[in-house]
Amino acid sequence: MIKLDQFLKFVGVAATGGQAKMIILDGEVRVNDTVETRRGRKLAPGDKVAIGEQVFEVQDDIT
């Protein structure tokens, strides 16, 4: 499991935790097609995270 804010940093969408927090709180992030505003949301393998037109799938090997 990985938290949403950590995932955004991992995939390079956000450079810092603060930037990730603002992206999430601004409602710019969808998890499995639902807007997510909780930065501590735990993601599981197979979850799809979308920011604008970019879509990322959470893989098993993310720690």
Results as ranks from 00 to 15, higher is better:
Pro45Leu: 14
Arg39Phe: 06
Gly40Cys: 13
Val31Asp: 07
Val58Cys: 09
Thr16His: 00
Met22Cys: 05
Asp26Thr: 12
Gly18Glu: 00
Val35His: 04
Ala15Thr: 09
Thr37Asp: 11
Ala50Val: 08
Arg41Phe: 03
Ala14Gln: 03
Phe7His: 03
Gln19Phe: 09
Phe7Ala: 01
Phe56Arg: 01
Gly17Ala: 05
Lys48Val: 13
Glu57Phe: 04
Gly17Ile: 04
Thr16Val: 09
Val29Cys: 01
Thr34His: 12
Gly17Pro: 07
Pro45Lys: 14
Gly27Ile: 14
Met22Phe: 13
Asp47Tyr: 05
Phe10Leu: 11
Lys42Trp: 12
Ala14Arg: 00
Arg41Lys: 12
Ala50Ile: 03
Arg38Cys: 05
Glu28Ala: 03
Gly46Asn: 15
Gly52Asn: 10
Val58Lys: 07
Val13Pro: 08
Ile2Gln: 10
Gly52Leu: 02
Thr63Lys: 10
Asp33His: 13
Met1Gln: 15
Glu57Pro: 00
Lys48Cys: 09
Glu36Pro: 06
Lys3Trp: 01
Gln19Tyr: 07
Lys3Ser: 09
Lys3Pro: 08
Ile51Tyr: 09
Gly17His: 05
Gln59Glu: 12
Met1Thr: 13
Thr34Pro: 02
Ala15Val: 11
Ala15Trp: 01
Gly27Glu: 13
Leu4Ser: 09
Ile24Arg: 02
Gly40Gln: 15
Ile23Pro: 01
Asp61Glu: 06
Arg39Ile: 04
Phe10Ala: 15
Phe10Thr: 12
Ala15Ser: 10
Asp61Lys: 10
Gln59Ala: 07
Ile24Cys: 04
Val35Arg: 08
Arg30Phe: 01
Ala50Trp: 01
Ala50Phe: 05
Leu4Cys: 07
Val11Trp: 00
Thr63Cys: 14
Arg30Lys: 15
Thr63Tyr: 12
Phe7Thr: 02
Gln54Asn: 14
Val49Tyr: 02
Ala20His: 00
